[in-house]
Deep mutational scan, measured.
Amino acid sequence: KDKDLLKGLDQEQANEVIAVLQMHNIEANKIDSGKLGYSITVAEPDFTAAVYWIK
């Protein structure tokens, strides 16, 4: 199951987060929520590491 990592990002921010996570071998998903911006989700086992790397 995926957990929400970040919400309300613009496309550039979302792409930067995806890139950082991929560099650390964390699979992440970018979801277009329309006017609400983009959300990033990661698998539950990767959540703690993902939070660490996006600081």
Results as ranks from 00 to 15, higher is better:
residue 51 V to I: 12
residue 20 V to P: 00
residue 3 K to L: 11
residue 23 M to Y: 10
residue 34 G to Y: 04
residue 49 A to R: 11
residue 28 A to F: 10
residue 15 N to R: 07
residue 22 Q to V: 07
residue 39 S to T: 15
residue 6 L to K: 03
residue 17 V to A: 07
residue 7 K to S: 12
residue 19 A to Q: 09
residue 28 A to L: 03
residue 13 Q to M: 09
residue 44 E to C: 08
residue 40 I to Y: 00
residue 23 M to F: 11
residue 40 I to P: 00
residue 9 L to C: 13
residue 55 K to L: 13
residue 10 D to S: 15
residue 41 T to F: 08
residue 27 E to T: 13
residue 18 I to S: 01
residue 29 N to P: 01
residue 22 Q to W: 10
residue 1 K to L: 09
residue 24 H to T: 01
residue 31 I to H: 09
residue 23 M to R: 12
residue 26 I to T: 01
residue 55 K to C: 15
residue 51 V to R: 08
residue 11 Q to Y: 12
residue 33 S to M: 15
residue 52 Y to C: 13
residue 25 N to G: 15
residue 8 G to I: 03
residue 26 I to D: 00
residue 1 K to E: 08
residue 31 I to K: 07
residue 38 Y to I: 10
residue 34 G to Q: 04
residue 43 A to G: 06
residue 1 K to P: 09
residue 39 S to Q: 06
residue 47 F to K: 02
residue 8 G to P: 01
residue 42 V to W: 03
residue 1 K to W: 09
residue 52 Y to P: 01
residue 30 K to V: 14
residue 14 A to E: 01
residue 7 K to E: 08
residue 35 K to G: 10
residue 25 N to C: 13
residue 37 G to Y: 05
residue 31 I to T: 05
residue 29 N to H: 12
residue 55 K to I: 13
residue 47 F to I: 04
residue 31 I to F: 07
residue 3 K to W: 09
residue 53 W to Y: 10
residue 40 I to V: 09
residue 22 Q to Y: 08
residue 4 D to H: 14
residue 17 V to M: 09
residue 11 Q to S: 12
residue 15 N to T: 06
residue 11 Q to P: 09
residue 9 L to G: 02
residue 55 K to Y: 11
residue 46 D to R: 03
residue 34 G to V: 04
residue 53 W to C: 06
residue 12 E to A: 11
residue 51 V to P: 00
residue 38 Y to N: 02
residue 38 Y to G: 00
residue 16 E to I: 13
residue 27 E to G: 09
residue 53 W to S: 01
residue 34 G to M: 03
residue 21 L to E: 01
residue 48 T to S: 12
residue 13 Q to K: 09
residue 24 H to Q: 06
residue 22 Q to N: 09
residue 27 E to A: 13
residue 13 Q to S: 10
residue 23 M to W: 07
residue 52 Y to I: 07
residue 9 L to W: 02
residue 5 L to N: 01
residue 27 E to V: 14
residue 31 I to P: 02
residue 49 A to C: 15
residue 51 V to C: 14
residue 9 L to F: 02
residue 38 Y to M: 04
residue 13 Q to I: 06
residue 31 I to G: 02
residue 6 L to N: 02
residue 25 N to T: 04
residue 42 V to G: 01
residue 30 K to H: 03
residue 7 K to W: 13
residue 43 A to H: 08
residue 28 A to G: 05
residue 6 L to W: 05
residue 48 T to P: 12
residue 32 D to E: 07
residue 31 I to V: 10
residue 39 S to W: 10
residue 3 K to Y: 09
residue 33 S to K: 15
residue 23 M to I: 07
residue 2 D to Y: 15
residue 17 V to H: 02
residue 39 S to D: 08
residue 49 A to N: 10
residue 23 M to P: 02
residue 52 Y to A: 07
residue 6 L to M: 10
residue 11 Q to G: 10
residue 25 N to W: 06
residue 29 N to Y: 11
residue 22 Q to E: 08
residue 17 V to G: 00
residue 51 V to A: 10
residue 1 K to H: 10
residue 45 P to N: 14
residue 41 T to R: 10
residue 46 D to S: 04
residue 21 L to T: 02
residue 47 F to T: 02
residue 20 V to L: 15
residue 47 F to V: 04
residue 37 G to F: 05
residue 27 E to C: 14
residue 14 A to C: 06
residue 46 D to W: 10
residue 31 I to S: 04
residue 33 S to P: 01
residue 14 A to P: 00
residue 47 F to G: 02
residue 48 T to K: 12
residue 41 T to A: 05
residue 24 H to E: 02
residue 42 V to M: 02
residue 54 I to V: 08
residue 20 V to F: 15
residue 11 Q to E: 15
residue 34 G to W: 04
residue 26 I to M: 03
residue 24 H to M: 05
residue 49 A to W: 10
residue 32 D to V: 06
residue 54 I to K: 00
residue 5 L to D: 02
residue 44 E to P: 07
residue 53 W to I: 13
residue 55 K to T: 14
residue 55 K to F: 14
residue 21 L to I: 01
residue 52 Y to D: 11
residue 5 L to T: 01
residue 8 G to M: 05
residue 35 K to A: 13
residue 39 S to G: 06
residue 5 L to Q: 02
